[in-house]
């Protein structure tokens, strides 16, 4: 802040600006790198309607997908292959001891099931072996860990 002839002016210090520009550039480069490499082998979600339903009903508050989400209910990453479509429909319509009945329309159920099916095709979680690969067992990645 400078005082000149009774007026106050502000002068910006360029050294910190330069360092900050460097910091931001580094951060955005890392973000772009993550965007570029992540999910290259993963399938695209065939239905964004299912994802939208998942978010609008806030399923993530109780359920996790690949460990990200709530813990009060089971992780649903492989719910499609482990439980099957019929079971998922039954729980959505009737609820369970801990879960309310959502009573979605058939179209909505189909979209949500398609979403869970797409996720199921990406990963195996949790692993079902004590000797499981510590970096996970992917259904789509070419890496064999």
């Amino acid at each position: 802040m400078l005082e000149h002839e009774g007026r106050t002016t502000f002068r910006i210090d360029y050294a910190p600006l330069f360092r900050t520009a460097l910091l931001l550039t580094g951060y955005f480069m890392v973000s772009l790198f993550v965007l570029a490499v992540a999910g290259k082998d993963g399938p695209s979600d065939p239905t964004l309607v299912g994802k939208d339903l998942w978010q609008r009903n806030n399923c993530v508050s109780c359920h996790a997908l690949v460990g990200l989400g709530g813990h009060i209910g089971p992780d649903l990453t492989n719910a499609f292959s482990r439980r099957g479509e019929g079971y998922i429909r039954y729980v959505l319509n009737n609820g369970s001891q801990k879960m309310p009945a959502f009573r979605l329309s058939t179209a909505e159920q189909n979209a949500l099931i398609a979403y869970l099916k797409a996720i199921d095709s990406t990963s195996i979680y949790p692993l079902k072996s004590y000797d499981g690969p510590v970096f996970g067992q992917s259904k789509t990645s070419p890496y064999k860990h």
């Binding site: 993550v34 965007l35 992540a38 999910g39 993963g42 695209s44 979600d45 964004l48 990406t122």
Partner: peptide, 25 residues
């Protein structure tokens, strides 16, 4: 930066790819 990046899922090519969305998230 973190808040902005947490909204990248709004971009269809990110939000429509579960694996990419999970990583960016």
């Amino acid at each position: 930066g973190g808040v902005v990046e947490s909204h990248f899922w709004l971009i269809p090519s990110v939000g429509g790819n579960f694996v990419k969305d999970l990583t960016v998230q």
